[in-house]
Design a protein around this nucleic acid. Structure first.
Length: 341
DNA sequence: TATCCGTGGCA
DNA sequence: TTGCCAAGGAT
């Protein structure tokens, strides 16, 4: 490795960050006092496996509607779930509320140590370290996907992910400075997002290129090495579109599993072949409506056929939602597509 | 440890 | 079109 002097990394990186930090809604400028811990925490949860571009409008809406953690803690569950609709990974929204209520219980506010943050719902190793460093200036070792990539290149780590995670964390800890840890963490992530990118890293303008064993190897883009992935299975399901007097039938999905707790069209079983009208909310002459909707989840690809029928006169169950106000129903993207089909 | 859990942009 | 993957966490 070229990085036999880990102390050289942070000063180089911070000097670069002072000139090239991205301006983001939840961030203080380099060297400035840290932002409100509530804003840091909210942004970090939204940014879990989510791009800054996707998270930004949600962050602004949440902060405007619920300006403090106390306001969020007092919100209705359904309002928060609906406000999260479209951002994905909906367990985050449930944990967000649970965390807000835990933090406001007793009035102490956010804990200021990594260990105490780690015990809160929806806060794992990454988020605990990030909030501790960014909001409370703690020298926590922050490790996200960007930092794994940067570190794997700096040290030319040949072990494949995810097995190499522990080693990458240990190496990352050797680089973490005692001064400006929040700026340092954000600098590492900015470097990964803008220069040390997954494809075609811009080593020519990288502030760490003289320290980087991956660059010295001539093929930095082959780091981090990753284990082979399995192909996504394809699955099929039917969604049942029922209209009555300008309204459409919606249901709330179960608290666990796919799209948990979200409003949705009624669906039948997810299967290896089109299941037709199996699982329909009532017996009827169901007719396919348009082509199947394709939607890609993390671990499978779904082909969703929208089926349509008129409800029996006395049918009840679910919620009738006005079609001309469907945008306010808080549907996840899959069902927005299905309704629009 | 491995699996489950969304979405959208990009090459 | 297809695969990749982005500031991960819970179980």
């Amino acid at each position: 490795m070229l990085v036999d002097t880990p102390d050289a990394v942070a000063p180089q990186l911070l000097a670069w960050y002072d000139r090239h930090a991205r301006a983001l809604a939840w961030r203080s400028p380099p060297g400035a006092p840290p932002p409100d811990p509530y804003a840091v925490w909210l942004s970090e949860v939204m940014l879990q496996q989510t791009t800054t571009v996707a998270a930004a409008p949600f962050f602004r809406r949440f902060l405007e509607r619920w300006p403090t953690v106390e306001a969020l803690a007092a919100a209705r569950d359904d309002d928060v779930m609906a406000a999260w609709a479209g951002l994905g990974y909906y367990a985050r929204a449930r944990n967000l509320l649970a965390c807000a209520r835990a933090v406001t219980q007793g009035g102490a506010g956010f804990p200021d140590t990594e260990a105490a943050l780690r015990d809160l719902p929806g806060i794992g190793d990454y988020t605990a370290a990030a909030v501790a460093a960014i909001a409370f200036d703690r020298p926590a070792t922050v490790v996200d996907g960007n930092i794994e990539r940067v570190v794997s290149r700096l040290f030319a780590v040949a072990d494949p992910l995810p097995g190499a995670k522990a080693r990458l964390r240990t190496l990352a800890a050797t680089l973490t400075p005692d001064r400006r840890p929040g700026d340092y963490a954000q600098a590492m992530m900015d470097l990964g997002a803008t220069i040390c990118t997954p494809r075609s890293p811009k080593c020519m303008i990288c502030p760490l290129h003289l320290l980087c064993a991956g660059r010295a190897s001539g093929a930095p883009e082959r780091f981090p090495v990753k284990a082979a992935k399995i192909a996504k299975p394809r699955r099929f399901a039917s969604a049942f579109r029922v209209e009555r007097a300008g309204s459409i039938l919606l249901v709330r999905r179960p608290d666990r599993g796919l799209l948990a707790g979200m409003m949705a069209l009624p669906t039948g079983p997810f299967a290896d072949a089109p299941p037709g009208d199996a699982g329909a909310p009532f017996a009827a002459d169901w007719q396919g409506r348009g082509a199947a909707v394709r939607h890609v989840f993390t671990h499978f690809e779904l082909s969703l056929q929208v089926m349509e029928a008129a409800p029996p006169p006395a049918f009840e169950g679910g919620t009738w939602w006005p079609i001309d106000r469907i945008a306010e129903a808080g549907l996840p993207t899959l069902f927005r597509k299905a309704v629009a089909a």
